[in-house]
């Protein structure tokens, strides 16, 4: 066997290995939801209430009217997370 064949075989084995051990194929169906009250200060995705306009403008951790995108279904599981703006 020449070097090239050895290499191609090794790559094929690698792909098989990767496919076998790949984590559950859930990516692709991921839906996003806006989650309020969990963004770290300055890391909100957009709109943090009166006087602010857009991304990065929330001033406190977990500001109730600032949201960020999280994978669907995880918002309720986050401490302080809410699907609606909080006062």
């Amino acid at each position: 066997m020449n070097n090239k064949v050895i290499l191609n075989t090794a790559v094929a084995t690698a792909i098989t290995l990767a496919a076998l051990t790949a984590p559950e194929a859930e990516a692709g169906n991921k839906k996003m939801e806006k989650c309020y009250g969990v963004a770290k200060a300055g890391q909100n995705d957009c709109k943090a209430g009166p006087g602010t306009s857009c991304a990065g403008s929330s001033t406190k951790d977990g500001q109730g009217d600032a949201w960020m995108y999280v994978p669907k279904g995880t918002c309720d599981k986050l401490v302080g997370g809410s699907l609606k703006p909080k006062k």
């Binding site: 090239k4 290499l7 090794a10 790559v11 084995t13 690698a14 792909i15 990767a18 051990t21």
Partner: peptide, 29 residues
């Protein structure tokens, strides 16, 4: 992959051809 592997072999320490499969499999994942 061919070029990258030969480069890694030429510049690496104690790297063997048998490591390509597990290494590439790991990286793909």
């Amino acid at each position: 992959i061919n070029h990258a592997w030969h480069h890694a072999m030429a510049n690496g320490k104690g790297l063997e051809n048998s490591e390509l499969s597990p290494m590439l499999g790991y990286l793909l994942n």
